[in-house]
């Protein structure tokens, strides 16, 4: 009974959230806030991509590098080869995934700190290439004049921030639905197993390398898609969009939101995307405050906002239930 009613509650919350999100452009006017909402969705897609990699226990600091691959690919495919947006968009995801597949076979053997150090270096490497491979990337000046997205059966292009919002929302919802299904499937269980104990997972018939590789490829695919979205949204990309700090940002979205649920990276993107704007009044001190907030988070909310909310909700629920549960046999609920 309780499981069923909470499932209905969850369904209602999800439908309400989707409808609410769909209506945002009708209520939010002014480019400033629409810009932020668009960026939130793009960042959420990217943070979700990192979430699946984290779910197998690999902490990657190269996510912005894979985003860069997608962004430059998408920009050049539309600029130089005049491909339609949708084709370039999908190809950029596939390209990032292909790079992940090639690299992953070797680098996923690295564990813990070594994987972190390597992906840090990898991100710097991609950053250097984006600065130096002028023919491909436009060097330090970057690529300008990237076109707004066009869609089949839709006249014109998604020029305004409100039009773009619906595209970003659709991509975000598709990514979310896909990951939600994946996490509930046996493969989701495999990822949890590999994260918690690779040794035990291997001893019970999981192939840890394969599980990590699939997650890395899917996560990088989403990073490529996010890169493409951001290129066609900002219409301008340059190496500074893909620094190590961007990778840290995606990691932070997961950690601040809580990396053990899909809500985590989304909440993280909602909080962190507008944060620089909130700190804008203290422009001088913005960077310092950002660092300070990060340290305070690690000190007091290391499992993220989602887990803190979850714990307080559970505490309230327990408190409400306590009188009725008195004397009830605890084992009663365990019978299937």
């Amino acid at each position: 009974m309780r499981a069923r009613s909470s499932r209905y509650a969850l369904a209602i919350v999800i439908v309400a959230a989707v409808v609410g999100a769909w209506l945002v452009p009708s209520f939010v006017h002014g480019n400033f806030w629409l810009h932020i909402f668009d960026m939130m969705l793009i960042n959420a897609v990217l943070a979700l991509g990192l979430n699946i990699i984290l779910k197998t226990g690999q902490v990657s600091l190269a996510h912005a590098g894979f985003m860069a691959i997608g962004a430059y690919a998408s920009a050049q495919l539309t600029l130089k080869l005049a491909l339609p947006f949708l084709a370039a968009f999908l190809l950029s995801g596939i390209l990032a995934a292909a790079v992940a597949l090639l690299l992953g076979r070797v680098i996923l053997r690295l564990k813990g700190v070594y994987f972190i150090l390597f992906t840090f270096a990898l991100n710097e490497f991609i950053f250097l290439v984006s600065k130096d491979a002028v023919a491909l990337t436009g060097g330090n000046t970057g690529l300008v004049g990237i076109k707004a997205p066009t869609l089949p059966f839709v006249a014109g292009s998604l020029q305004t921030k409100a039009q773009f919002y619906y595209l970003a929302l659709a991509v975000f919802l598709l990514a979310l639905a896909f990951l939600a299904a994946l996490y509930r499937s046996p493969f989701g269980r495999a990822m949890d197993a590999v994260r918690e104990s690779e040794q035990l997972a291997e001893a019970t018939g999981y192939d840890p390398m394969r599980v990590k590789l699939i997650a890395f490829v899917i996560g990088s695919f989403l990073a490529g898609l996010g890169g493409s979205l951001s290129a066609h949204f900002l219409r301008y990309i340059a190496p500074f969009n893909f620094t190590f700090w961007e990778s840290v940002n995606f990691l932070l979205m997961n950690i601040i939101g809580g990396s053990f649920s899909l809500a985590g990276p989304i909440i993280g993107a909602l909080i962190l995307t507008p944060l620089p704007e909130f700190l804008r009044d203290y422009l001088l001190w913005q960077q310092f405050l950002y660092g300070l907030i990060l340290m305070l988070f690690m000190r007091f909310l290391p499992d993220g906002v989602t887990s803190a909310i979850g714990m307080s909700v559970r505490a309230v629920v327990d408190w409400v239930r306590t009188p009725r549960r008195k004397g009830a046999p605890v084992a009663a609920e365990t019978q299937p």
Binding site: V59, I116, V248, L251, L252, I255, L284, W285, Q286, Q287, F288, L289, Y290, G291, L292, I293, L294, M295, F297, M298, R299, P302
Partner: peptide
């Protein structure tokens, strides 16, 4: 992981203060 992230925060914070 918390220590690593805090070190990142420290890095940003020190840079931020010194830039000011």
């Amino acid at each position: 992981l918390s220590m690593l992230m805090s070190a990142l925060g420290l890095q940003i914070a020190i840079q931020g203060v010194m830039a000011v």
